[in-house]
């Protein structure tokens, strides 16, 4: 019995050693955020074994990466988390010599504010924040955030229950940056959100419920992420999506390699594989977010290119901005102001 036990223990000791040997890569991605057949194809083509792990929130992912140094070779954080990870020295620089397919990345996403020169991150998917609206209930053109304050749409506006997004929309409608760290602008943005409550166009602050409620025709207008908007538009053809002229938020989910990753080169091979136009196309058609890959966009054809929800015009994009990682004490000012808005009766 003792011999058997020690044998088991020995095997258990060796398993991690095998797993970390050459020819593997540990990928840490969002839940349901890849066409899984792509992983099999990568394993077939390169012989590298993919250890695929999933997470559900950025914060959760950061805790895991922090607690298991060297365990993950490739992660998929959102852009403002990339910025936070860089400032905490959690990421290693990417060697673009190993990623020839990076040349397909769209120009406007190549030199980002959150990671200058994209030294630490390669865009994977991106999208916008805009207004999802029901064409049967909205007669005015939806081209400005101002429509969310239009008394014609009493109790007909869903806002996002997220301080960054809602304060961001309010700031943008006033002509300020979504990353404002100017207290006058922030106080005015709060007043503007309170005004929305006073006018009575606001129906609810919520997140997950919105897309299904929009499908059933519960409200005329909703602030929404482009990916969720596309999901809803597929289920109800009366729905349409627009990014207002004042500009909005562009978000990017990126691929990054944590410091001390054991299989950095394999991770770079995986990034290169995901940047290959045909593979990027498959992922994009599976996830329905916008692809940062010009090669994939060319492959997807007219339907994709002419859909303003997936592929906003350059002018629109020029007015949009990335979220920056708002630092303390401004982060808690955002939270305090938004709490005041939400608790106002």
């Amino acid at each position: 019995m003792k011999k058997f036990l020690s044998l088991v223990l020995l095997v258990m000791l060796l398993i991690p050693a095998f797993a970390q040997a050459e020819g593997t890569v540990t990928v840490f991605n969002w839940q349901d955020y890849i066409d899984e057949s792509v992983i099999e194809d990568f394993e077939k083509e390169t012989g590298i074994k993919v250890n695929y792990v999933r997470f559900t929130t950025n914060e959760d992912m950061m805790v895991q990466v922090d607690a298991n140094p060297g365990h993950f070779d490739l992660c998929f954080p959102s852009e403002y988390i990339v910025e936070r990870m860089i400032s905490q020295d959690m990421l290693s620089e990417i060697n673009y010599d190993h990623i020839p397919n990076a040349k397909y990345i769209l120009e406007n996403l190549q030199n980002s504010t959150y990671d200058p020169g994209n030294a630490h991150s390669v865009p994977y998917m991106w999208g916008t924040v805009g207004i999802l609206y029901n064409t049967k209930l909205v007669s005015d053109p939806v081209d400005s955030w101002g429509i969310l304050w239009n008394p014609k749409y009493m109790k007909n506006v869903f806002m996002l229950d997220s301080y960054r997004d809602s304060m961001g929309v309010s700031l943008k409608s006033l002509g300020y940056s979504m990353n404002s760290e100017n207290i006058l602008e922030l106080e005015m943005a709060k007043e503007k959100l309170l005004e929305q409550k006073r006018i009575g166009t606001l129906k609810a602050y919520q997140v997950d419920e919105t897309k299904d409620k929009m499908v059933s025709g519960e409200a005329a207008l909703a602030v929404m992420w482009s990916g969720d908007a596309l999901y809803a538009m597929d289920l109800n053809e009366d729905l349409a999506y627009a990014v207002p002229n004042e500009g909005s938020n562009v978000w990017v989910d990126c691929m990054v390699i944590p410091k001390n990753a054991k299989n950095k080169e394999n991770a770079e091979k995986f990034i290169d594989f995901l940047c290959r136009p045909d593979i990027a196309q498959r992922n994009c058609e599976y996830i329905w977010y916008s692809s940062p890959n010009s090669g994939a966009i060319a492959l997807m054809g007219e339907d994709y290119i002419s859909n303003p929800a997936i592929n906003p015009s350059e002018e629109t994009l020029a007015r949009c901005e990335f979220f920056r990682d708002i630092k303390e004490p401004y982060r808690s000012i955002y939270v305090t102001l938004f709490e005041e808005v939400k608790s106002a009766k």
Binding site: A204, Y205, S343
Partner: peptide, 10 residues
Amino acid sequence: PRILGGGNTM
């Protein structure tokens, strides 16, 4: 309050 009050009634 979040489900039935729509986040308006914290």
